[in-house]
């Protein structure tokens, strides 16, 4: 007997039991594989239907589970306020920082422009004002940079809301529709609060406001940006009254374009 043959006989003797178990295990595995293949081949629901069911579930899930998830989130937020604040604080903080930085950049640009025209008559007047009023020149410069600016002016028929004339610094929306919408808001306020002799005066939205001055058959709406001081409001009131006084007789004679040019020319002085 060679040494190789002897070793094999020894292996057979030592691992006879294990070899038997290995063969049994292998057979069972083969059987399981055959069963899986059979059930996949003989299944009653085809792939297409499964896809449809999954698709439907995806559609229905937000509707069915949405309220439960929302409620769960609400409860979680209510019960873990500190954690929520902790998580949101860095994000909100960053947002506020970014906003302030942006606003400061805008303000600084405006101040730069003012300083560039340092020797203009306007700035000279500002320096004189600072000397006489005791206010600092810088303070006056900041005030000037953030002062109100007319963005749009509308002259609108009181009840119909039909636009008679308008001026716009940068036309973004349809002027006729803005006139209609302003009139609708004005009518809504008047009707809701039953103020027979009262009228809507200002609509404020963020740093933007619409100042309304009503006359008998029409009203003037001025859209403004920036800080509206009492002094500016007074100036605007005077300018509107003067414009109406000078133009009332011609309001129906002038066409919309001519009247719009007149508005632009008149209000540029403010």
């Amino acid at each position: 007997m060679s040494s190789k043959g002897g070793l094999s006989a020894l292996k057979d003797l030592l691992f006879e039991e294990e070899k038997k178990k290995y063969t049994e295990l292998n057979d069972k595995l083969k059987e399981v594989n055959v069963r899986i293949d059979d059930s996949l081949n003989n299944r009653t629901v085809p792939d297409k239907e499964i896809d449809q069911i999954v698709g439907k579930m995806v559609q229905v899930m937000p509707e069915k589970l949405g309220p439960t998830i929302t409620e769960t989130l609400k409860v979680q937020i209510r019960e873990s306020k500190d954690e929520v604040v902790q998580a949101l604080f860095p994000i909100i903080g960053q947002m506020i920082k970014k906003y302030i930085a942006q606003e400061i950049a805008v303000l600084s640009e405006k101040i730069d422009r003012q300083i560039e025209s340092l020797f203009s008559l306007e700035n000279l007047a500002l320096r004189l004002k600072a000397t006489f009023t005791g206010q600092s020149y810088g303070e006056l410069l900041i005030q000037k940079a953030s002062e109100a600016q007319i963005q749009e002016i509308f002259i609108i028929e009181e009840h119909s809301g039909i636009l008679m004339a308008s001026y716009s610094r940068n036309k973004t929306l349809d002027q006729d529709m803005i006139a209609g919408m302003l009139t609708a808001i004005k009518s809504f306020v008047k009707d809701s609060f039953e103020g027979k002799n009262q009228d809507l005066e200002t609509i404020t939205y963020d740093a933007f406001s619409v100042y309304v001055q009503s006359f008998n058959k029409f009203y003037v709406a001025v859209a403004l940006s920036g800080v509206i001081t009492a002094e500016f409001k007074q100036k605007l009131d005077d300018a509107i009254l003067k414009f109406i006084k000078d133009t009332t007789a011609k309001l129906t004679d002038l066409d919309e374009k001519k009247l719009s040019r007149k508005i632009e020319h008149h209000f540029q002085k403010i």
Binding site: G161, D176, M177, A184, S187
Partner: peptide
């Protein structure tokens, strides 16, 4: 003709709609 259309939200009765919306309508 510029038709400025005021689409009034549906109510059961016209009496509930603010009267001012109808004033000045052509």
């Amino acid at each position: 003709v510029n038709m400025i259309l005021w689409d009034i939200a549906g109510e059961q009765s016209a009496s509930k709609i603010p009267k001012n919306y109808f004033i000045g309508a052509h």
